[in-house]
Amino acid sequence: MSTPALDGTAGDRGRTVRVVIVDDHAIFRSGLKTDLDPRIEVVGEAGTVERAIEVIGRTRPEVVLLDVHLPGGLGGGGREVIAGSAALRGTTKFLALSVSDAAEDVVAVIRAGARGYVTKTISGAEITDAVYRVAGGDAVFSPRLAGFVLDAFGTAPADIADDELDKLSARELEVMRLIARGYSYKEVAKELFISIKTVETHVSAVLRKLQLSSRHELTKWAAERRLL
């Protein structure tokens, strides 16, 4: 799946980013390594939950490319890796990678703390972009993830005064809708006459709501929505 939100607008492209790839398929790991931009330095690889926590703790990368489904541990997969690396929170960012489109998996790993979610079929250039964006502190939303958010939070905007976590503001809804329609951050900015930075702020706010919302229906909703 393409992720048009990634259009080369992520800042700080010049510097080297240290990443760890966590995936249980060696073929996929080596393929991803060759696909990534040369300025992205792969400092470690892991194929199981335990090994991933160990490698991440030792190498302290900026970004972890994390498969949602992993063997080992207590069966929690990528979620468990994020929880096990809690000591590094703030310095290490997680970007979830998955072949699964199931809302249950996506929402679970985002709520565990991942800064974004992309499917494994995206191109090397797109994933490079996503790595830079996550390393820069922004969130990476694919159209599908935006669709999940809209489905989970509802498409009715919150009252202006309403600053609760269970609803999206009218502006956030607009941004999510455009991303779901396949707009890149740059195109969203153009369409709404705002800066890219503002779009990034809105997306980060939505990610925060997705992670922090106490709505337990969110998890229930994700579990029920098996199909997409």
């Binding site: 799946m1 393409s2 159209p143 599908r144 935006a146 669709g147 809209l150 489905d151 498409t155 779901a180 329609r181 396949g182 997409l228």
Partner: peptide, 9 residues
């Protein structure tokens, strides 16, 4: 040509 569908509701 890839056609990606996202649906809400």
């Amino acid at each position: 040509n890839a056609v990606d569908v996202v649906s809400v509701g």
